[in-house]
Each structure stands twice: as structure tokens, then as C-alpha cells.
Design a protein around this nucleic acid. Structure first.
Lengths: 125, 125
DNA sequence: CTGTTATAGTTCACACTATGAATGAATTAA
DNA sequence: TTAATTCATTCATAGTGTGAACTATAACAG
């Protein structure tokens, strides 16, 4: 993650947040908090950073003035495009280093590991 | 890691640091910095936390009074024993959730993934 | 032997991630 | 129309981490 921060002049959390706008037109702090799995007050700070950098903008929901609607700006769109391009490149490279005949096997094994870890996590909750 | 912190009343970094004393009798801040892969000033803080909690202690190296020798206390030893017991339990559970006939396969695949990730990391350095 | 030069550790300012309590504002429900 | 709920923000707090400046000690070179 350090790479991304340095490369794109964005703290890690802001980068992750910005990328959420690829999927949806408008996001609310509450929704972002859920997606990023952090608390709302944290989202406030992240958002402020992105607004200060002119990557997203904020309007009030006309339906319910308690809620804030966040949308990405043109600058922000440019930035996410750059980031996604970079990430795709990495993903492609990682993939190309793994022989095609090993890939399904690898994925299956990762699932096995994941399932095991999650079941232990269950036990501890 | 959150589990450990809560369970053992130790911040993550302090826990990791304390566990280093399983291997060696005396550690220096410099050596700890290398093992934890952080900067020396960070180690100073971590160490102070552990000393305050009476888990490690500090003496001056009689050979070279620039260097500080850190060693674990009885309390600290007790704590590491607890932690290691807990960790062993988890490791055992994780392992027991993975069918023995899959284990070597899993390890092999993780190596494949690791190698791939590392070679990409190389490219970017 | 004495002045560099290097090494070990600390302090401090800074940046970032994250939580939770308290607050203000708007909405919903009784 | 109160009362309860919801949304977002602010603030205090805790933690991880870096890097520059500084102190003290040790090693080295003339």
C-alpha cells in the first residue's frame, strides 16, 4: 500500500475511499464507513482530505438534509483511472508469473486456507 | 492482531517485540529495529512501554556503554508463555481445519504466489 | 594523544490510521 | 408536538511509524 500512497500522493485510506466511487455515482459517509469497515468519524476525516484535494465533492441530499452525498470530480475520476491502470498492470504481472495450469489450483487452495482461518475466527468470536 | 492486543493488554508492536525475547537472551534496540523492520526511534517507544509494564528490563553493556542490553523479566516470560500458548492453539486449529492431504499442496501454492508477488515487487523497486 | 568520524540511543515534530463519546441538526414515530 | 432515531461532525485519545537533530561513547588517523 505504501507504493500507492507515494505514487499517487494519497494516504492509503483516502486512496481506498476514492476507489469506491468507481462503482457508484453517489456515496454517503455512512455507506463509505460500511464499505471501508471503519467508523463514521473516520470517514469524515478521509472525506475532508479528498475534498481538500478536489477529488470528490459534497452536496446535501435534497430528500433528507441530514445526509451528505459525495461524488467524484473530474480530477478524482482522472486519478482513479490512473490508479486502476496501475493496479491492473500489477495484477497482470502477478498473474503472468503464475503458470496458467497452476491458477485454478492456487485459487482452490487459497479458498481452503480462507475457510480454515474463518472457521477459527468464528470460534474466537 | 487486534485479538492479541486485547487479550494480552499489549499494543501490537509491543507484543511483537516481546516475542523476540523467546529466541535470545539479550537484545539491543538496534537489533530489535532490524527484526521488527522499524526505525530505531520507534523501538525506543516500544521498549519504554514494555519497561513501564515491567516485562523487560534495561542495562548498559559493560563492554560498550553506548549500547543498551534488554532482557525479559519474569513477568515478561510469563506473558510470552501465555501468548505462545494461545498462538499455538490457533495454529493447531487452523491446521486441523485443513485436510492433511491438502497441506503440502497448499504450502506449495502459497510459495508460488509468494514468488510471483516478490518478483513483481522487484520490478517496481 | 588529540581531533575527526562513526555508532547507539533518545527526543521531538510530524503524518497517518482508527475508535468512541458528545453534540447539533434533521427526520420519524408516538 | 414531544420523544426517539438517524446522520454527520468534532474532539480527545491511542497506536504505528518516519526522519532530523542531538547526546554520548567508541574507534580511527595523523
Amino acid at each position: 500500500m505504501q507504493y500507492q500512497s507515494d505514487r499517487f500522493d494519497l494516504p492509503d485510506a483516502e486512496l481506498r475511499c476514492l476507489l469506491l466511487f468507481g462503482d457508484e455515482r453517489y456515496l454517503t459517509p455512512k455507506g463509505i464507513a460500511q464499505k471501508l469497515n471503519v467508523v463514521k468519524s473516520r470517514v469524515t476525516k478521509i472525506i475532508n482530505g479528498l475534498i481538500k484535494k478536489n477529488l470528490i465533492q459534497k452536496i446535501k441530499d435534497p430528500e433528507d438534509s441530514r445526509v451528505t452525498l459525495l461524488s467524484i470530480t473530474a480530477d478524482g475520476r482522472q486519478k482513479t483511472d490512473d490508479i486502476n491502470l496501475f493496479l491492473s498492470g500489477i495484477h497482470y504481472q502477478v498473474l503472468s508469473n503464475i503458470h496458467p495450469e497452476n491458477r485454478t489450483d492456487l485459487l482452490r487452495n487459497l479458498e481452503v486456507l480462507k475457510a480454515s482461518l474463518e472457521s477459527v475466527k468464528e470460534l474466537m468470536a
